[in-house]
Amino acid sequence: MEEIRTGVCMICEQQRIGGIHIIMAFICDECSSEMVKTNVSDQKYPFFVKQMKKAFYRGNSKQYMN
Rank of each mutant, 00 (worst) to 15 (best):
Q15M: 05
V8S: 04
Q63D: 11
M24Q: 13
C28T: 02
Q63V: 10
K54D: 07
K37S: 15
E13V: 01
M10S: 08
H21K: 08
N60R: 10
Y64S: 06
E30S: 14
Y64E: 04
M24Y: 13
C28V: 00
N66H: 11
K62C: 09
Q14N: 09
G7C: 00
N60L: 14
M10H: 05
G19T: 04
R5L: 11
R16S: 02
K37M: 14
V40C: 12
F47L: 04
S61Y: 11
F26S: 04
P46F: 00
Q14W: 07
D29S: 14
E34N: 15
M65Y: 13
C12K: 02
D29M: 12
R16C: 03
G7Y: 01
I20C: 08
R16K: 06
N39Y: 15
E34A: 15
Q51C: 05
T6I: 14
R58F: 14
I20N: 11
G18K: 02
C28L: 00
G7E: 02
M52R: 06
Y64F: 14
S33K: 09
M65D: 14
K53I: 12
C31I: 06
D29F: 13
M35K: 09
M35N: 11
F47W: 03
C31F: 06
Q15K: 09
G18V: 02
E30F: 14
S41Q: 07
Q14L: 12
I27Y: 08
A55I: 09
K54L: 12
C9T: 00
E2Q: 09
N60E: 15
F48V: 01
K54E: 09
M52I: 08
S32L: 10
I11E: 01
Y45D: 03
T38P: 05
E30K: 14
C12F: 01
T38K: 04
C28D: 00
T38D: 06
Q15W: 05
I27K: 03
N66E: 12
K44P: 05
V8M: 06
N60M: 11
M10L: 13
E34D: 15
C9L: 00
V8F: 03
I11S: 02
I20H: 12
Y45K: 03
V36Q: 11
M10W: 06
F56H: 09
Q14D: 12
